[in-house]
Amino acid sequence: MINFSIVTITWNNLAGLQKTYESIARQKYRHYRWIVIDGASTDGSVEWLAQLNEPRAEITSEADKGIYDAMNKGLVQATETPGYTLFMNSGDRFYDDSSLQKVVQAVTGAAAAPKYLYGDYFLESAEGKLTAAYGKSIDKISLGMPSCHQAMYFENAHLRHIRFRQNYQLSADYCMIIEFVRGLDAATQILHIRTPLCIFDMTGISQRRRFAALREDVHIRMQYLKLGATKAYGLYGLHFLHTHSKILRAALEKRLS
Results as ranks from 00 to 15, higher is better:
residue 79 T to G: 12
residue 174 Y to T: 03
residue 207 Q to T: 11
residue 248 L to W: 06
residue 105 Q to V: 00
residue 127 E to D: 13
residue 17 L to A: 10
residue 254 K to D: 12
residue 78 A to M: 09
residue 60 T to K: 07
residue 176 M to R: 04
residue 224 Y to M: 07
residue 245 S to G: 13
residue 35 I to Q: 12
residue 35 I to D: 13
residue 107 V to P: 01
residue 142 S to G: 05
residue 129 K to N: 11
residue 107 V to S: 04
residue 90 S to D: 00
residue 85 T to Q: 02
residue 177 I to W: 04
residue 113 A to C: 15
residue 1 M to L: 03
residue 182 R to H: 07
residue 108 T to W: 13
residue 173 D to E: 09
residue 75 L to E: 14
residue 183 G to D: 08
residue 76 V to K: 07
residue 103 V to S: 06
residue 164 F to Q: 08
residue 70 A to Y: 08
residue 91 G to E: 01
residue 82 P to K: 05
residue 76 V to E: 09
residue 173 D to Q: 01
residue 55 P to Y: 10
residue 256 L to T: 04
residue 47 E to S: 01
residue 37 I to E: 04
residue 81 T to P: 12
residue 241 L to T: 04
residue 14 L to Y: 05
residue 103 V to Y: 09
residue 70 A to R: 11
residue 119 G to I: 09
residue 227 L to R: 11
residue 149 H to C: 02
residue 178 I to A: 04
residue 149 H to E: 03
residue 151 A to Q: 05
residue 253 E to F: 14
residue 119 G to V: 11
residue 209 R to M: 06
residue 91 G to Q: 12
residue 56 R to W: 09
residue 228 G to K: 11
residue 109 G to V: 04
residue 6 I to L: 05
residue 241 L to A: 01
residue 222 M to C: 05
residue 257 S to C: 15
residue 3 N to G: 15
residue 211 F to G: 11
residue 147 S to P: 10
residue 85 T to V: 08
residue 11 W to P: 06
residue 48 W to M: 08
residue 199 I to P: 10
residue 45 S to P: 07
residue 203 T to Y: 00
residue 12 N to F: 09
residue 41 S to C: 08
residue 188 T to N: 04
residue 253 E to S: 14
residue 8 T to G: 03
residue 110 A to L: 07
residue 49 L to G: 14
residue 67 I to E: 10
residue 13 N to P: 07
residue 192 H to L: 01
residue 198 C to I: 10
residue 168 Y to C: 01
residue 75 L to F: 11
residue 180 F to P: 08
residue 117 L to Q: 08
residue 154 F to V: 14
residue 187 A to N: 07
residue 69 D to Q: 07
residue 87 F to H: 06
residue 124 E to F: 08
residue 94 F to Y: 11
residue 96 D to C: 06
residue 225 L to M: 02
residue 195 T to R: 05
residue 33 R to I: 10
residue 161 H to V: 08
residue 74 G to E: 06
residue 13 N to M: 12
residue 200 F to N: 11
residue 224 Y to N: 06
residue 255 R to N: 09
residue 94 F to P: 01
residue 149 H to W: 04
residue 235 L to R: 14
residue 132 A to Y: 00
residue 168 Y to A: 06
residue 52 L to E: 13
residue 136 K to E: 08
